[in-house]
Nucleic acid binder design. Sequence first.
DNA 1: TTTACTGCAAAGCATTTGCAGGGCG
DNA 2: CGCCCTGCAAATGCTTTGCAGTAAA
Lengths: 130, 130
Amino acid sequence: MKSRRTRSQTQVLDLLKQLENAISAQELYAQLKQRKISVGLATVYRALESLKLEGVVQVRTLPSGESLYSPAQADTHHLTCLRCGNSIEVTECPVHGLEHHLNESHQFQIFYHTLEFFGLCETCQLKGAS
Amino acid sequence: MKSRRTRSQTQVLDLLKQLENAISAQELYAQLKQRKISVGLATVYRALESLKLEGVVQVRTLPSGESLYSPAQADTHHLTCLRCGNSIEVTECPVHGLEHHLNESHQFQIFYHTLEFFGLCETCQLKGAS
DNA sequence: TTTACTGCAAAGCATTTGCAGGGCG
DNA sequence: CGCCCTGCAAATGCTTTGCAGTAAA
């Protein structure tokens, strides 16, 4: 067995909890540096990976391929414009019943879910296709 | 105004409709070649981008950063293991009411949504953290 | 002819991996 | 002393972009 949390894991998790919004690994790395916490980018990724498997951190992967990390309790979802990429937060969430159901029917240990709506925002609808 | 569909857009969309499952741009490119349809990879990406904005193709971005494309009518969601990456399809979907609601409350033109549950599958639960 | 589409190759970027040094038990 | 954690730099892989040739209107 190994120690429950490494130093970098603790630092990363602490910062994630302090921040209000989900954040990318790159930004997280920058923020840590800014706070005089010396850590390598690869280490940030490795810490996030472990925390993810532990179930304390959740991930949302953007269409750009970038991933945003946040503590795994938030139940915030998104309404995203396919054209400009802007996201609006959605707090309503009708899937918890289903989550419990899947948990049992598939023997899965579900940590969290992501729900995202895609389309065109009002502004981008006016611009037409291109 | 431009022609409604370019040749490559038609080819890409036709193939997407023929296939049962969502497919990556790279695979799509390979499949087209295999069918003797000469097309560049960049063109495949550009066609997918246009079809996406048109609302006829939907995208799901995997944690790996790779994106899977499919015709935008499927209402298939996923239960994904954070450790091994395997996905199980989920056909239940309790979010349509919310979708309609958001459509109106935010002046968004919603094309589709993604819903994904993350956790550990039965097999990976047994392996413990590492 | 004029404009938009296409293909190739080069670039861009987030993420992952190899490896050697360092810290902790 | 030995093992895991770290950090740097190199490598990977998907996607995007620049540019010149091509097809279409």
